[in-house]
């Protein structure tokens, strides 16, 4: 059963986003997404200070078997990328909600996060996919 922490927000494309308390938000892929992809071997991270719109492709996660685009859950400006993934992309498999975060951004409008799925709603998205 896939892990879905209560305190995060989610997208239908299996990204998570969490406010960090300093005006930025961290973004990663969900436990379900890393499980479906299998062993990650390469992560292409966004350029620093790039402005992104909601739904823009801003990273690519590649497992042995497939490449998958990562979309920005909200509009904002990229403020930090997880450089540890350059040498250790497997962190995304081992700890998708922690050390396996992909990037941080400064949301254009913090209220946009409220529009995203909560843990229960994301759980329902996964349940629908199973049917």
């Amino acid at each position: 059963m896939s892990d879905i922490p209560e305190n995060l927000k989610y997208t239908r494309d299996h990204e998570w986003i969490a406010e960090t308390g300093d005006g930025t938000a961290a973004v990663g892929i969900t436990d379900h997404a890393q499980e479906a992809l299998g062993d990650l071997v390469f992560v292409e991270l966004p350029e620093m200070h790039r402005d992104v719109e909601t739904g823009d492709v801003c990273a690519v996660v590649e497992s042995v078997k497939a490449a998958s685009d990562v979309y920005s859950p909200v509009a904002g400006n990229i403020s930090e990328v997880n450089l540890a993934l350059d040498d250790s992309p497997e962190l995304v498999n081992a700890d998708p909600y922690g050390e396996g975060w992909l990037f941080r951004l400064t949301p254009a409008s913090p209220a946009d996060l409220e529009e995203l799925l909560d843990a229960q709603a994301y759980q329902r998205v996964l349940a629908e996919m199973d049917e």
Binding site: G38, D39, V41, V64, K65, N93
Partner: peptide, 8 residues
């Protein structure tokens, strides 16, 4: 079966 755990 695609993999049982890590395919690597």
């Amino acid at each position: 079966p695609v993999a049982y755990g890590s395919q690597i």
